[in-house]
Write a protein that binds this DNA or RNA. Structure first.
Lengths: 192, 192
DNA sequence: TCCAAAATCTAGCAACGCTAGGAACTAGAG
DNA sequence: CTCTAGTTCCTAGCGTTGCTAGATTTTGGA
């Protein structure tokens, strides 16, 4: 049954190719450019092949998003590890988060703004999703009371997310970003 | 030239009808249901008539959004006026903001999440947009240093926006919303 | 009453996500 | 080596979208 294995391996490779092509295309030309036709041409197969791997376009975007969670978690962890102290860690992680969103806007959108039915705060969420959240929570822990850790982490995350999305959609001036970020960190770390 | 005036009046009425129909349809069935065909049927004209009023679908959404800014500004002003003190005003306005987003999700999306090229932080922004922002700024003023008022207002706004969008997209549990809101207000009003 | 101009509609284009049904290839049996 | 059953894949097309060119109708003044 080695043939079956080879088949499955090839299928898995092709699935990865689809995800990679979708991510690359989205990052270079935006999600609007990621059409099923374009994607099929990119992987050199016909459209229906995409549907043999994924239920639809949304599922492909969800798969791309899942990869993103791993990247983000890595970035946050690195920022936290490199920080000198607990207060600085908050600032560093905040900076890392917004910088990730700025550097990889399409990926960020798939993860956090576009509607994709990924299970978030639920047991069957993608593995890297809680990792990223845990990274945030560990950063927030020193500035949170024990019983408010989760809620405060979510609130901090929301603030970062809001800053990022409003800025990226042109609703906040980019020039003042650092200032806003500093204010946010200041308010969250005050009196602790 | 009374005829010309009547014509212009009728045109203005029809333009309002388009905006109203778009808003109603979006609020009852979501923006996906707002197609140019559907909208044309709703106002009992053919599709091209829409394009004689607006450049495209995005422009119609932008017009709906502009209306929303007036509503939101009103809500925020009312909440602030009804609050007992400065600290309570912050909480009341935060609550009013998120409540607006929850009650009128489609309108909120047109205003703040969907890409529409509305000029925001610029001189030729729609008149009610700075009004809403000013309402927020006035609320934030007592808890801000003089030179950080604008940036802090933007940061506070971002946090509210983040809470709203992450919750509405199912990325935050609705049950903990009040708790997160309280934490946010607490952190922003601390030490003032 | 007629005509130019304005207003409006019909019909259709290109592109989208998605899928049914047939063609082409593959693996194992005889 | 050949045939067949089963899998894999592609062609072609459906219904829908935003948008528009060109024909048609309506309008107001001569």
């Amino acid at each position: 049954m080695a043939i079956r294995e080879r088949r499955e391996r090839e299928r898995a490779e092709r699935e990865r190719a689809i995800i990679t092509a979708a991510r690359d295309l989205a990052e270079s030309e935006g999600w609007d450019a990621v059409t099923t036709r374009r994607l099929a041409a990119e992987i050199e197969y016909s459209q229906p092949v995409l549907y043999s791997h994924f239920k639809g376009k949304e599922a492909i975007m969800a798969a791309v998003a899942v990869e993103g969670f791993a990247d983000l978690a890595r970035d946050l962890a690195a920022a936290r590890a490199a920080a000198a102290g607990e207060r600085q860690a908050v600032a560093a992680v905040a900076e890392a988060y917004t910088s990730f969103a700025e550097r990889r806007p399409a990926l960020y959108d798939a993860m956090f703004t576009l509607r994709v039915d990924l299970p978030f705060a639920s047991p069957d969420a993608p593995i890297d999703l809680p990792r990223g959240f845990a990274e945030l929570a560990d950063t927030v822990r020193p500035i949170a009371a024990a019983d408010e850790l989760e809620a405060l982490t979510e609130t901090f995350w929301s603030a970062l997310h809001g800053l990022v999305t409003l800025m990226r959609s042109g609703r906040l001036r980019r020039a003042d970003h650092a200032r806003r970020l500093a204010l946010l960190v200041d308010r969250f770390t005050r009196g602790t």
